[in-house]
Simulated assay, not measured.
Amino acid sequence: MSERRPPRSRAVLSFLGDSRSRAAAATTAAPPSGRDVDRALTDCAVYEGGERQGGQVPLEEALQRARGCSDGFVWIGLHDPEPQAVELVGQFFGLHPLAVEDAIHAHQRPKLERHEDLLFLVLKTARYVDAEELVDIGELLLFLGDRFLVTIRHGEARPLAELRRRLEDDHDRLARGPGAVFHAIIDAVVDDYADVLDGLTNDVDEIEAAVFSDVRSNPTERIYRLKREVLQFKRAVTPFVHPLTRLVEDEELPVPDRARPYLRDVLDHLVRDAEGVTSIDELLNGVLDANLAQMSVRQNDDMRKISAWVAIAALPTMVFGLYGMNFEHMPELKWDLGYPAVLVLTALACLLLHRRLRRAGWL
């Protein structure tokens, strides 16, 4: 079900204007302030020549310092920010109001938008909680400019602190600018998809083994729960193929040429993951059908066994019921061996019937 787009706030509408006025505002606007930004800010750093310049830089100094460097850029990270924090950061960096609106409301489909010299990318993060057989889906929004990268993360999946530390140890990669960080983040998210696929595949294998094992069990509920997680993961992975394909193939997008081969490699992995989650979804459908068929076969076997034992029990019931009618003229009533003879003959008949039903596969 598609979500209805909420009405734009006055603060967002107030950002409308041409790109030059917004770019000028990025250098002259009053610095963002307030507890909302400080609470959501995970890190803010300026990089020049592949090295971090000092520690965490105050937001009001970040862009000015980056513009003062010959090849520097600023990377700002926000986690679950309040709308006011997103609006302030958007105003400070001259972000497009439509992109700011999407970042405020979140819960967007994976997509790529270009606002003049700014790229706005929405992608879903994922991690697999094996103990609960749960796919934890988050959201990551990336704003890529010439001298800055803003990352807004919603949810707990894919923290970027460890990735930032690894990149800071790779000075050559950071020296390539914010585009290299942009690629590294996408690559890390797609790598997480592969880990989720591995976890889902293991659980599907366990369910298959349970369905076709001799131990009687009913994993239908587990299959439905896992299928729901697979569908949720599929909605995160499959729509991301198109935006990433645009990043690779659209030469008009402001993506560094030397970054395209690396993005193409990430695209190959993403396509493989999309095919993998589709295969798992189809496999779960097959497992569910097999489980239902298996349950039907077992029920039929149970009914045949019950019917076979009823038939065996019917024979002595008929014989003993006949003798219970107290007839006076029955040949064997006055025969000394009549009683044991009837018992033996009845038992032999039951044994013969049991053997016949067993050969027929009913027992």
Rank of each mutant, 00 (worst) to 15 (best):
M1A: 06
S9M: 01
R10I: 11
L13H: 02
S14V: 04
S14E: 12
S14Y: 05
F15K: 15
G17D: 09
A24T: 09
A25P: 07
A26W: 12
A26I: 08
T27Q: 10
V37W: 06
D38A: 12
R39T: 03
R39M: 01
V46E: 01
E51Q: 03
E61L: 07
Q64N: 04
G68D: 12
G68R: 11
C69P: 03
C69Y: 06
S70Q: 12
D71I: 00
F73Q: 06
D80L: 04
E82P: 04
V89N: 11
G90L: 12
L95C: 09
H96M: 05
H96Q: 10
P97A: 14
L98Q: 13
D102G: 05
D117P: 02
K124N: 03
D130K: 14
D130G: 03
L134V: 11
V135P: 02
V135A: 12
L140M: 14
L144W: 12
L144C: 13
R147G: 09
L149P: 08
V150K: 11
I152L: 13
R153W: 09
A157E: 09
R158A: 15
P159A: 15
L160N: 13
L160V: 15
R164T: 14
D170I: 06
H171N: 07
D172Y: 02
G177A: 03
G179D: 03
A180P: 01
V181C: 05
H183Y: 11
A184D: 07
D187T: 11
G199F: 11
G199R: 10
D203Q: 13
V204Q: 05
E206P: 00
S217W: 00
R222K: 10
R225N: 01
R228N: 08
T238H: 00
P239V: 00
F240W: 02
V241D: 00
L253M: 07
P254I: 11
D265P: 06
L267G: 02
H269D: 09
D273C: 15
D273R: 03
V277T: 09
D281G: 08
L283P: 01
D289F: 00
A290P: 01
A293P: 09
M295R: 02
M295N: 03
Q299S: 05
N300L: 02
D302Y: 00
R304V: 05
R304N: 10
I306T: 09
S307P: 02
W309R: 03
I312D: 03
A313I: 04
L315F: 11
P316S: 08
V319R: 04
F320L: 15
G324S: 10
M325W: 07
N326E: 09
F327P: 06
D336P: 01
L345V: 15
L348F: 15
C350L: 09
C350N: 09
R355D: 13
R356L: 14
L357S: 06
A360K: 14
